[in-house]
């Protein structure tokens, strides 16, 4: 078994440039960690102009039980999230300590402290928010998940094996994104983790996994000047120019046009028309307000 911990990410081919940028940042700051990519597609579909310096493992080699059904039920985005527990199981066969980082992330300095935290815990999960009363709408976070699935540490242990089997079973069957039903692909299942498993560490480190959801409560400049900035996750926000530059070096523009092989296009994806329509409908709500006033 490899002695060095593995950092892995999971992505589709259209996100491969992101994964490579993450891998480059790991290589610079954490040469003591191995970096590997789980691909929710087939390796043979990767265009020839991509030469990855990091091992890429295609999802087929995991032989996920019920994979065909998942691909029929889930969107592309759900597929990537819902395959995560299975990739984690796969990599834990090769290492004692494993860290998952979202492919849209970049690390800025060594995160070796995770390695020592895993000596004392089985599972590390990362809250979306850390400070009460700062985020302008905390209920959004309640809805999508107190813990963010973009940064998870795992130690090879009986408890972790139990956790991954349970998590995978849920993402296989109920990996939909439907917040009205308490479902958010792989992420909302993490709510149960501190109650259901032993040795769970809740990582309260404000320089880890900074994303649009916690920007209101994190001071980037302060973190930088205190050397406490560890990782930023650019998921679902406009990429800043320095990140885009790095992506472009890995043919981001060409890769991002490739349709993922598994799952389907999200029919509820916000389009320009839908956004305008919902704005028009919100104007219509004024009718009720005015009529209610008029009646009373």
């Amino acid at each position: 078994m490899a002695s060095s911990p593995i950092i892995f990410t999971v992505c589709t081919i259209n996100q491969l440039a992101n994964a490579l940028v993450l891998g480059d940042s790991v290589k610079i700051h954490n040469p003591d960690f191995e970096f590997q990519i789980g691909l929710v597609d087939e390796e043979t579909n990767i265009p020839n102009f991509i030469q990855s310096p990091y091992p890429i493992i295609g999802v087929k080699s995991l032989n996920i039980n019920g994979f065909g059904g998942m691909s029929e039920r889930y969107t592309h985005e759900e597929m990537v999230a819902d395959c995560k527990p299975f990739f984690a199981e796969y990599f834990l066969k090769k290492t004692e300590k494993l860290l998952f980082i979202d492919c849209t992330s970049v690390i800025f300095q060594s995160i070796s402290f995770i390695d020592s935290l895993l000596n004392k815990s089985n599972i590390i999960i990362t809250p979306q928010l850390l400070f009460a009363n700062v985020h302008p709408d905390e209920k959004q976070i309640l809805n999508s998940g107190i813990y963010h699935a973009g940064f998870i540490g795992l130690k090879n242990s009986v408890e972790t094996t139990k956790f991954l089997a349970w998590w995978g079973n849920n993402t296989r069957q109920k990996g939909f994104k439907n917040m009205c039903k308490g479902l958010n692909a792989d992420q909302l299942w993490l709510e149960h983790v501190p109650a259901m498993f032993d040795g769970v560490h809740i990582l309260k480190e404000s320089g880890i996994n900074i994303g649009y959801w916690n920007l209101p409560e994190r001071n980037l400049n302060q973190l930088k000047s205190n050397s406490k900035l560890y990782s930023i996750n650019y998921r679902d926000r406009a990429f800043p120019s320095e990140y885009t530059e790095k992506l472009n070096k890995h043919s981001y523009k060409k890769l991002s046009k490739i349709t993922p092989k598994y799952g389907f296009e999200d029919p509820n994806k916000p389009t320009f028309g839908k956004t305008i329509a919902s704005k028009i409908r919100s104007v219509n709500k004024l009718v009720d307000v005015i009529l209610d006033k008029f009646i009373s």
Binding site: A132, E138, K139, L142, S144, I146, M179, C180
Partner: peptide, 20 residues
């Protein structure tokens, strides 16, 4: 209001171990 993450006082408690 489950679609918006709200369930009386109880759901807010999810934040307790994280915030405090």
């Amino acid at each position: 209001d489950l679609c918006n993450g709200l369930f009386v006082d109880q759901h807010w408690a999810e934040f307790f171990p994280v915030y405090f």
